[in-house]
């Protein structure tokens, strides 16, 4: 298994505040990586550095598939490989569901209109909302919207999908429908980096878990190692507090 994403000494400051501190990390192809940790621990900031929605500090370096992530012409090639699913879905409200899914391939991958349409229908079928293709985002439930967002990400045929707390904005009864879609993807070989608060989901789906706190990686390991055999006290305290709830 080859390394797909490499982070070397990556930090991110907002003024004097340091959100992410000197992170070193390898993500291998096909891996499902879950990042857990308390709010404000830098999880989202870290994955937003990978597709350069956040400009990380100059001393660090991120590569995706061997290409350095930085401002410039290569950025659009990076973003063709790295798709993202947001906490607030961020569907385009003025476009219908079908067009939301078609836009990326048409504009960035120069796919023809008819091919993009065919693929969009396939993906909407895969996430179970084919019959809503002509509707607009505001006509769908939160769970349905997030499934469209996943279809939109998949339409780019990315090497990796970043999930930024994909179920945090959802009503409880809709969480499972979205998690089920993500679980199905885990078997398809696509690399996934998932920031999540759903511990049982993380344990079930992840190949590797990272626990972050105050901008640093406190511990990393397999789900069993982290959940049952944690070496760090901070990890154990955190898990105890969230699993009790």
């Amino acid at each position: 298994m080859s390394v797909l994403i490499n982070l070397k000494n990556v930090s991110k400051h907002y003024g004097n505040f340091c959100a992410v501190k000197r992170i070193n990390l390898n993500i291998v192809e096909g891996e499902v990586l879950c990042i857990i940790g308390p709010s404000g621990s830098g999880k989202s900031t870290l994955i937003r550095c990978i597709n350069y929605l956040e400009e990380y500090d100059g001393k660090g370096k991120i590569t995706v598939n061997g290409i350095t992530v930085k401002k410039g012409n290569n950025l659009k090639n990076i973003r063709k490989e790295v798709a993202m699913v947001f906490q607030n879905f961020n569907l385009f409200p003025h476009l219908n569901i079908l067009k939301n899914v078609m836009l990326g391939p048409i504009r960035s991958l120069k796919v023809s209109q008819s091919n993009a349409k065919k693929r969009a229908y396939d993906l909407l079928g895969k996430v179970g909302i084919k019959d809503q293709a002509d509707k607009f985002p505001f006509q769908l439930s939160g769970g349905q919207q997030q499934r469209v967002a996943i279809a939109r990400a998949l339409a780019m045929k990315p090497k990796v999908i970043l999930f930024d707390e994909p179920t945090s904005s959802l009503d409880p009864e809709m969480v499972s429908e979205v998690l089920d879609v993500i679980k199905d993807l885990a078997g398809t070989g696509v690399t996934m980096v998932i920031v999540t608060h759903e511990m049982s989901f993380a344990r079930q789906v992840a190949d590797k878990i990272i626990f972050m706190d105050e901008g640093v990686i406190v511990e990393e390991g397999s789900p069993d190692q982290i959940f049952d055999d944690s070496k760090k006290e901070r990890t154990r305290i955190f898990l105890k507090s969230v699993l009790k709830a």
Binding site: R79, F86, R107, M156
Partner: peptide, 29 residues
Amino acid sequence: PKGQFEAAKALGLSPYHTMVDIILPQAIK
């Protein structure tokens, strides 16, 4: 909302297409 710009960026849209396809149709409305 900022999320619209981010979603467009994440899809690899150029600044031109971000404006023309995503931002302006909503802003003008």
